[in-house]
Design a protein around this nucleic acid. Structure first.
Lengths: 296, 296
DNA sequence: ACGTTTAGTACGCTTACCGTACAATTTTAG
DNA sequence: CTAAAATTGTACGGTAAGCGTACTAAACGT
């Protein structure tokens, strides 16, 4: 019996009894297995695995070789993967997919020139990020030469709980979502300074919200600090976060608060006023538990 | 009768009679419809369509509403799309897909710091691109404030035939592929300066290859010029192109050739020497005709 | 209030997909 | 250099996963 048939058993609608944010997606009867599997094949590739063989992908994804082969042939036919000998690689075409998202986020475009000026002015890297579940995702970035241990570019992800942008974004979620996020977050002590306690994190979020910015010092990584402020949409809701990273050292905090923060605020006002209409999507914490099993 | 059954009729292997580059993909018996359709749903979103309703997507993709719904539910379940009211939007998660490709292209990482120095030195924007079929795809970019009519970012695409990076990349393809590319290109006169003649284009490509760089003046757009040089992998093959754009004006050409070109060459040598092993994929023109029907 | 468009549900049909099994090829090991 | 191991490619029967039509319900526009 098909999974879809279950609908008969359960009766009518899937009954949104859990206080889920209105429009949630179940893995309900409407679920296309092949699409899920195909996307997982793409995700099998990554930083440390630029080229994979059929068998490797099959092992990686837990799918049968026959299935992986069909999926790869399809992706190849569509131009998303290339084959050299027995190795498969992703093609620039998959970038196109991601680009769809970026170009549907106008603020990423409008912010760029402002970010360039800002980064030059203070000679530190500057990024724009949005929230996706537990992570901050970088949607725009202007780097300056400084050699940092962390090399981030557009599309990169960092845990929200220990980054300045993450805190700003979570702090400005509507109450219900923030609570949900806090309840589900799993903070880890990345350094000895990381706030890894749920309670303390909650209090910090309150503070961030009321003071309108987040300053994080060596919580993600030793030697690294950052300040972030919220970027607002037309109707005032937070749609992104803008941050500046700086090396830790004596006076880092003072510099962050007295020099950088005001510059960030100015940049934000510019962005807020510059861009015209579409104010869309900061992303939400809703998605937190709807991940594919083979997470992150 | 299933399409896969056809294999019985055709006998053994699909017979690579056409002089296709060794490992080509057919839309053969191994083809997963749902994956193709699902990816098309993602591609339905774009610059001018950040939020779409079910019916709009169905119209856009030519799929039945029931199918689109199932695909959207699946994408939603996996966290690739969000739903607000009746509108669907892409989430930052799709960026993750594109990011897989970028991070599997090491040169994009290694080039960044070099590009930053270069861009600052000459105060002009600098980009790194690879070839994908008929297009150049931007995989890294360092912009400077100058207001250009064209606003490019990572993931953007431009036709190869009328851009400096495109010419460099095509010029350095192996002979067979370059011929193929030339035979299939459909040049259009984007400005009165565009080389829109196949023969002239072929000659220009030869020149570009022998001289080791491409200079393009107002062929893509009036007021815009650019110079590009090839970036090499370990084994000497061209794996990307590095370019600098500059505004057109009297002396633009002179400046491009006497000031910018040497700087580009220097930057290239740095990149060539810097990065360690993996030299992968410049992308190829192979994929040119394996596009989904609802192309670019 | 009424027609029109859109979203959601139901369900029978079948094809598109699955996975096992086998053959051909390449790689590793001894 | 040959045997064993691993990987890719091919074949094919079974079926459930996905399809699309048809209908209902809700939302929208005027």
């Amino acid at each position: 019996m098909s999974a879809r048939r279950m609908r008969l058993a359960t009766g009518s609608r899937p009954a949104a009894d859990t206080p889920r944010p209105a429009d949630a997606f179940d893995r309900g009867p409407d679920y296309v297995q092949s699409l899920h599997r195909g996307l997982d094949v793409i995700r099998a590739f990554g930083v440390d695995r630029p080229a994979l063989s059929l068998a490797e992908i099959a092992r990686e994804t837990g799918l049968s070789r026959a299935v992986v082969r069909r999926l790869l042939m399809t992706l190849g036919y569509l131009g998303y993967v290339d084959k050299r000998g027995r190795e498969f690689t992703l093609t620039p075409r998959v970038l196109d997919l991601g680009y769809r998202y970026l170009s549907s986020l106008p603020v990423a475009q409008f912010a760029l020139p402002v970010m360039e000026r800002l980064a030059r002015g203070i000679d530190e890297s500057c990024s724009l990020g949005v929230l996706d579940g537990r992570d901050v995702v970088y949607v725009q970035r202007v780097a300056v030469r400084k050699v940092m241990t962390i090399n981030l570019s557009v599309g990169a992800r960092l845990p929200a709980y220990c980054t300045s942008m993450g805190r700003v974004l979570v702090a400005n979620l509507v109450d219900a979502e923030r609570e949900r996020w806090l309840a589900e977050v799993e903070p880890a002590s990345r350094t000895q300074f990381t706030i890894a306690d749920r309670g303390a994190l909650g209090r910090e979020l309150d503070r961030v919200r009321s003071q309108g910015f987040a300053y994080v010092q060596q919580e993600l990584e030793l030697g690294l600090c950052s300040v972030a402020v919220p970027v607002h949409g037309r109707s005032g809701e937070t749609i992104a976060a803008l941050n500046v990273g700086l090396p830790f050292g004596p006076g880092a905090r003072a510099r962050a608060l007295s020099e950088i923060l005001p510059a960030l605020r100015r940049a934000c006002r510019e962005i807020d006023s510059t861009y015209p209409d579409r104010l869309d999507a900061v992303g939400s914490a809703e998605r937190i538990d709807r991940r594919t099993s083979r997470g992150a």
